[in-house]
Design a protein around this nucleic acid. Structure first.
Lengths: 133, 133
DNA sequence: CTACTTGCAAATTATTTGCGCGGGG
DNA sequence: CCCCGCGCAAATAATTTGCAAGTAG
C-alpha cells in the first residue's frame, strides 16, 4: 500500500539532483546520459524506476506535451509551461497560477477539480531569431 | 512538403464520421474497433495514418494527457478538458476559452504564443458517486 | 490512367518488468 | 541481516513504415 522508494540510494539521489539542477525539462534519455557521467553503470531501467518513484512521492512532475516521449520537471509546484513548436523545447512561464480557473470549471459541472495544467504553444525567442522574424 | 490527404477515401470519411459523432475522446484502438463494424478489413495502420492526416489538416485534435496512449477529439475548436484521475475518462469543460491568458504569458517573455491548452484533473461525477462521496 | 491510399506485417520507440545479486538501513 | 533496489536483458505497448495491390478523381 505504502508507495515504495523508502531507500535513498545513490542512483535516486543523483537523478533528483540532476532534475533539480536544470531549468530544462529533460527526457529520460537525457537524464540517463547525465547520470552515466557520474555513475557509468547506472541502467536506463533504474532511471525510469526512480523517475516513477519520485513522481509518486510528489518530488517531480512528468510532462507529456504532444511528443511521443515524456519530459520531467524537478519543480513539483504547479506552474505553466511554454512549448516551442519549432524546437520542441519546454520552458517555464513566469506568471501566477490562476486557481480561480478551477472554480470556474467546477461550476460548469465537470467534476471535482484537484489541479489543472496549462501549456502555451508557439515559437520561442531563439527560434524566432533564427528564422529572422 | 504538402501534407498528403488529397483523397477522401471511404476509410478516411468513416474515421472522421466516427470522431465527429461521439462526445467521448476515443483512443486509436477504440476508433479501430468502431470502424471495423462498418469496414471489417480496415487496418489499424490506416486508422493511425488517417488520424495523422486529419490532424495535419486541422480537422481533429490529438490529446495526450498523462496516459501512454493518445486520445482524439473530433472538435478542432480550442476548448478545455477534464481528466478523471479515477477512470481516465476525458470530458469537455463547458467554459469559455480565455485568450487573455496568452497575452499574459507573452508578457512574461516566454515567446510568441499561438494557442494554449488547459486541462483540469480531478474525479468525475460518476466516480464520486461510485465511491459514495 | 496514375498517383495516392490501403492492408498486411514487420520494424521502431519509449517504457516496463523478471530475475538473481548487492548494499542501505 | 534482511529485503529493497540495482543492472541486465528480454518483454510490452503504442505507433510507424515498406511494399505490392487497389482505387479515387
Amino acid at each position: 500500500m505504502e508507495a515504495p522508494g523508502k531507500r535513498m540510494t545513490r542512483q535516486k539521489k543523483l537523478i533528483l539532483d540532476i532534475l533539480r539542477s536544470t531549468k530544462t525539462h529533460p527526457t529520460a534519455d537525457w537524464i540517463y546520459a547525465e547520470a552515466r557521467k557520474v555513475l557509468p553503470d547506472i541502467s536506463l531501467g533504474t532511471v525510469y524506476r526512480n523517475l516513477g518513484v519520485l513522481k509518486e512521492a510528489g518530488e517531480i512532475m512528468e510532462l507529456n506535451y504532444g511528443s511521443t516521449y515524456s519530459r520531467f520537471d524537478g519543480n513539483p509546484e504547479n506552474h505553466y509551461h511554454f512549448v516551442c513548436l519549432e524546437c520542441g523545447r519546454v520552458t517555464d512561464v513566469d506568471m501566477p497560477v490562476h486557481r480561480e480557473l478551477e472554480k470556474e470549471a467546477e461550476e460548469s459541472g465537470c467534476g471535482k477539480v484537484s489541479y489543472h495544467r496549462l501549456e502555451f504553444y508557439g515559437v520561442c525567442p531563439e527560434c524566432r531569431r533564427q528564422k529572422g522574424e
